[in-house]
C-alpha cells in the first residue's frame, strides 16, 4: 500500500460562466520515503495538485487515500488535524508570521495539535529548537522574519513544517524566491531530511537541476500527467495520451496508474 493513492482527481474552478479545469483526471501513487518532483509549465495545475495532496484544498471529484485513510471524505476539522500532524507544507513565499521570532514560528503548529499528537507544553520549546537545529538555524532562534535573509526564512519555514514529525514534506517551489546559493542551502536541508530521516518529499520546481535529485519526476501539462521520469530513466514513459504500446507492467512499475478513461483528452 502506498502512502498516497490518488485516483481520477479533478479540480474545476468556476469563474462566473467559465469553468477552469485545473486538474483533469490525475492518478498517482507515492510510496513512503520517496522523493517526487512535480514539474510543468505555469498554469499546468502543479500548485492545485499540491494543495489537494497537502489537504489544504479538496478535489472536485476523484479519490485520495492518504496513509490508508480516505481524505476526500473528510470534514474541515479532520483535514485540519491531518495537516497538523501528517503533512508539513513549505511555501514559495515562506508565509512566516510578521513580528514573530523564529522559535515562536516553529512552536506554532504544536499549539494546534490535539489528542494523540499533542506535544506537552514543556517540551515544545525544546522540540522547536531541535527543528531549528536540523535546518541549521540554531543561532537565529530569536530573529524575526525581517531580520533574516530569504534563505534563512525558508529554513525557518522548513523547521516549522518539520516540527510535528510529519510523514510527508511538501514544498511548492521552495527555492523560487531564492538566489542559487541560498537555494542550494535549502535543498541540502531537504536532502538531509530525506536521507537521514527517510521523510517523503513532494516538491514542485521549475529547476531541472533540482528535479534531478528526485527519484521520480511527474510532468504535468494542462491538468494531466504528461510524462513520468524515473531515476535517470528519462522519457522512459511516454505521455498518457500517446501511451499506445507501453506495457501495463511498465506503467505500474513507475507508479503511474492508467485510468480507464484517461485516454481521451478534452
Amino acid at each position: 500500500m502506498s502512502l498516497i493513492e490518488i485516483r481520477d482527481l479533478t479540480k474545476v474552478y468556476q469563474m462566473g460562466e467559465v469553468e477552469v479545469h485545473a486538474l483533469n483526471g490525475v492518478s498517482l501513487d507515492i510510496d513512503q520515503g520517496e522523493w517526487v518532483a512535480i514539474m510543468g509549465p505555469s498554469g499546468s495545475g502543479k500548485s492545485t495538485m499540491m494543495h489537494i495532496i497537502g489537504c489544504l484544498d479538496i478535489p472536485t471529484s476523484g479519490s485520495y487515500i492518504l496513509d490508508g485513510v480516505d481524505v476526500s471524505q473528510m470534514v474541515e476539522s479532520q483535514l485540519a488535524a491531518v495537516r497538523n500532524h501528517k503533512i508539513g507544507f513549505v511555501f514559495q513565499a515562506y508565509n512566516l508570521l510578521a513580528r514573530t521570532s523564529a522559535i515562536k514560528q516553529v512552536m506554532l503548529p504544536m499549539q494546534y495539535s490535539r489528542d494523540g499528537s499533542r506535544v506537552p507544553r514543556a517540551e515544545r520549546r525544546e522540540r522547536a529548537e531541535e527543528a531549528l537545529e536540523v535546518v541549521g538555524m540554531a543561532d537565529r532562534i530569536n530573529h524575526r522574519p525581517s531580520e533574516l535573509s530569504g534563505g534563512e526564512r525558508q529554513r525557518v519555514a522548513i523547521a516549522r513544517a518539520l516540527v510535528t514529525n510529519p510523514s510527508i514534506l511538501m514544498a511548492d517551489e521552495p527555492t523560487g524566491n531564492l538566489d542559487s546559493k541560498s537555494g542550494i542551502e535549502v535543498m541540502e536541508v531537504f536532502h538531509r531530511l530525506h536521507e537521514g530521516r527517510g521523510i517523503t518529499v513532494v516538491m514542485v520546481t521549475h529547476d531541472e537541476a533540482i528535479s534531478a535529485d528526485a527519484e521520480r519526476v511527474i510532468r504535468l501539462f494542462d491538468g494531466r500527467i504528461e510524462r513520468v521520469d524515473r531515476n535517470g530513466l528519462r522519457s522512459e514513459v511516454e505521455s498518457q495520451k500517446s501511451k499506445v504500446g507501453i506495457p501495463a507492467q511498465l506503467m505500474s512499475d513507475v507508479g503511474v496508474v492508467t485510468p480507464d478513461k484517461g485516454s481521451e483528452r478534452c
Partner: peptide, 11 residues
C-alpha cells in the same frame, strides 16, 4: 489566518 489554518489550526 490562512497560514495558521494551513499548519492545522481548527476553525
Amino acid at each position: 489566518i490562512g497560514l495558521r489554518k494551513a499548519i492545522g489550526a481548527q476553525r
